[in-house]
């Protein structure tokens, strides 16, 4: 797969990622692109490297009360609470549309117990339209499951191993939380459990207070901070993980990417693929400009293959 960025030359934007050949390294992040069905008015989903669906849980989840979001300087907090249609409805209503896409589709899986995760992955492991799974053990906005798995290395390894055993021949990517002392320890635990890739980072737990009411703005009190505000922290964490386990598994970098320059930073830090999240809310076709801009960067730097910039940090 090739992607043209200039009339005079064709550049190879394709990347190999967990055994998949992708048109380019740009994904849309889980929770910011639905199940791929909402964005088709604004961009061609097949022009992406891929996308990660909103979290799927075994049973439907209503999610948290409102307000669920609040904007902050250069960012936003969300506490959606893993609202989703549930496994059965996903299979019945969303999967047929996904099967019609040629782009890579990772299904983000969440749950309260290891059995919940395994049940979802077992059901979907044989579905042709799905390229792989992203294990959500880093959601900060639910009382059970989510981040409670992702902050304990022993639990990370255990749940990764259990889900990997259920995922058949499909690759498993583990999404890491920044809410740990050393993310390299989490990364190694996921790799030990059999992860095929790591995605990082999920949001940073945060709070906004209404000073008139003297109460948190979000009904959930806390939420996950995303957007440009977290980008430098995310870049650092990607590089930290790349140094620790980059030789063993590829990394999907995310956290505040809004421009091609942002994306290139993550790739230089060690990300093979990158995901655009919050920026899509403000500009639904933002990922298209990022794909184009990465190509222009490669041309300017005389890079003939995009793989050359992955982890090239001096």
């Amino acid at each position: 797969m090739w992607y043209s960025v200039a009339n005079d030359k064709i550049y190879d934007m394709s990347v190999d990622f967990v055994g998949l050949r992708l048109a380019n390294p740009v994904f849309l992040a889980s929770g910011t692109c639905g199940y791929g069905d909402e964005l088709s008015d604004f961009l061609d989903m097949n022009a992406l490297g891929g996308f990660v669906t909103k979290s799927i849980t075994l049973k439907p989840r209503k999610g948290n009360p409102t307000p669920r979001i609040v904007e902050t300087s250069s960012g936003m907090l969300n506490a959606i609470g893993l609202a989703n249609v549930g496994l059965d409805c996903f299979v019945e209503e969303k999967l047929p549309m996904i099967e019609g896409l040629s782009t890579a589709v990772f299904v983000n899986v969440a749950g309260e117990t290891i059995d919940d995760y395994v049940a979802v992955v077992e059901r979907l492991a044989g579905e042709k339209g799905i390229s792989g799974f992203e294990l959500n053990i880093s959601c900060p906005n639910v009382k059970h499951g989510g981040i409670t798995f992702g902050t304990d290395p022993a639990q990370i390894e255990e749940i990764t191993r259990a889900v990997k055993a259920a995922s058949g021949d499909k690759p498993l990517m583990v999404k890491l939380t920044p809410a740990v002392t050393d993310i390299a320890v989490s990364a190694q635990a996921a790799v030990n459990g059999g992860a095929d890739a790591l995605s990082l980072v999920n949001t940073f737990t945060a709070m906004v207070i209404d000073i008139e009411d003297q109460r948190p703005v979000l009904a959930n009190r806390t939420g996950g901070l995303s957007g440009p505000a977290i980008k430098p922290m995310a870049v650092y964490l990607v590089n930290r993980v790349f140094q620790a386990v980059g030789g063993q598994v590829p990394i999907m970098g995310l956290g505040g990417i809004a421009t091609a320059s942002d994306a290139v930073e993550f790739m230089i830090a060690g990300a093979t693929t990158i995901a655009v999240g919050t920026a899509t809310f403000a500009q639904p076709d933002c990922a298209m400009a990022i794909i184009e801009g990465i190509g222009q960067y490669c041309r300017k730097k005389g890079v003939s293959n995009i793989k050359e910039i992955v982890g090239c940090l001096q």
Partner: peptide
């Protein structure tokens, strides 16, 4: 409602709506 995207992506603008045939509500 406060909404981040306005196009059905962010799931933030939930409105509590009664569920037909039951006492429960859905967002």
């Amino acid at each position: 409602r406060m909404m981040a995207c306005g196009i059905g992506l962010c799931q933030s603008c939930a409105v509590d709506v009664k569920q037909a045939g039951s006492k429960g509500a859905v967002y």
